[in-house]
Simulated assay, not measured.
Amino acid sequence: MNAARLIGTVCGVGYLRPAPGTWGSLAALPLAWLLHTLGGFPLLAIATLAVFFGGLWATRVMTAGQDNHDPSEIVIDEVAGQFTALWAISYPAWAYGIDITALWPGWIAGFLLFRLFDITKPGPVGWADRRNDPMGVMLDDVIAGMFAGVGVVIIAGISHGVLGL
């Protein structure tokens, strides 16, 4: 397996069926935990950027000369998006010395919201997806991850009474 395929499919996770995108998102969870455990939010942020740019390269290589700009086996974009969604729990855990596993509701909300926004593609997520190029493949998931992260913060605020509701 060449390097682009290894990266793009996240070591073959993209070949799992059904729902390879969901498998890719699930694979991102233990990776995010490991990165956060080893280096806190800064390492997760750096890894997110590395995954984004590595995924952009892998997607370009894997789709070169093909009509399908986003084959289902490419799931590195889901990893980038899921990592982005998890910033909403990684940063506060790192900044306030909280064990990230104590924020388990945020993990669940981040996963579910990311999948929701990645599948339904509201607003800017859909715009990025319609680019029909490798940047769109990666960008739609990062934007979905941003939406999910905001959703996690809102849910946490409501749950903890911070928003006064």
Rank of each mutant, 00 (worst) to 15 (best):
1 M>W: 09
1 M>I: 14
1 M>G: 15
3 A>H: 08
3 A>P: 09
3 A>F: 14
7 I>C: 06
7 I>D: 10
9 T>N: 04
9 T>M: 06
9 T>A: 08
11 C>I: 15
13 V>C: 07
13 V>N: 02
15 Y>L: 08
15 Y>K: 07
16 L>T: 10
17 R>G: 00
19 A>K: 05
19 A>L: 14
21 G>F: 05
23 W>N: 08
23 W>D: 11
23 W>M: 11
24 G>T: 11
24 G>Q: 07
25 S>Y: 08
25 S>A: 15
25 S>W: 10
28 A>G: 02
28 A>N: 13
28 A>Q: 10
31 L>G: 01
34 L>C: 06
36 H>N: 10
37 T>R: 07
38 L>N: 04
39 G>I: 02
39 G>T: 00
40 G>N: 01
40 G>P: 02
41 F>W: 07
42 P>T: 04
42 P>K: 00
43 L>T: 03
44 L>N: 00
45 A>M: 05
45 A>T: 02
46 I>H: 03
50 A>V: 15
53 F>S: 07
55 G>A: 12
56 L>Y: 14
57 W>E: 09
59 T>S: 13
59 T>Y: 07
60 R>D: 03
60 R>H: 03
60 R>W: 00
61 V>R: 09
65 G>S: 01
69 H>Y: 13
71 P>N: 07
71 P>R: 05
72 S>Y: 12
72 S>E: 15
72 S>M: 09
75 V>N: 08
77 D>L: 00
78 E>V: 05
79 V>Y: 02
79 V>F: 03
80 A>K: 07
81 G>K: 01
81 G>W: 01
85 A>S: 13
87 W>P: 02
89 I>W: 01
90 S>C: 06
90 S>E: 00
90 S>R: 06
91 Y>K: 08
91 Y>T: 01
93 A>E: 10
96 Y>P: 09
96 Y>A: 14
96 Y>E: 15
98 I>C: 00
98 I>Y: 00
99 D>L: 05
102 A>Y: 04
105 P>S: 05
107 W>Q: 07
108 I>T: 10
109 A>M: 14
110 G>D: 12
112 L>A: 15
112 L>D: 13
114 F>V: 10
115 R>T: 10
117 F>W: 11
117 F>M: 06
117 F>K: 04
119 I>T: 12
119 I>H: 01
120 T>H: 11
120 T>F: 13
121 K>E: 02
122 P>S: 06
124 P>Q: 13
125 V>R: 04
125 V>K: 02
126 G>E: 10
127 W>Q: 12
127 W>L: 15
128 A>E: 05
129 D>P: 12
131 R>G: 14
133 D>S: 08
133 D>Q: 07
133 D>L: 03
135 M>Y: 14
136 G>L: 02
137 V>A: 05
137 V>T: 11
138 M>G: 06
138 M>Q: 13
138 M>N: 13
140 D>G: 04
141 D>V: 02
144 A>S: 15
145 G>W: 07
145 G>Y: 11
145 G>V: 11
145 G>P: 03
147 F>C: 14
147 F>V: 06
149 G>A: 12
150 V>I: 15
150 V>W: 01
151 G>V: 06
151 G>L: 05
152 V>T: 01
153 V>F: 14
153 V>Q: 15
154 I>S: 04
155 I>N: 04
156 A>E: 14
156 A>N: 14
161 G>F: 04
161 G>Y: 05
163 L>H: 06
165 L>A: 15
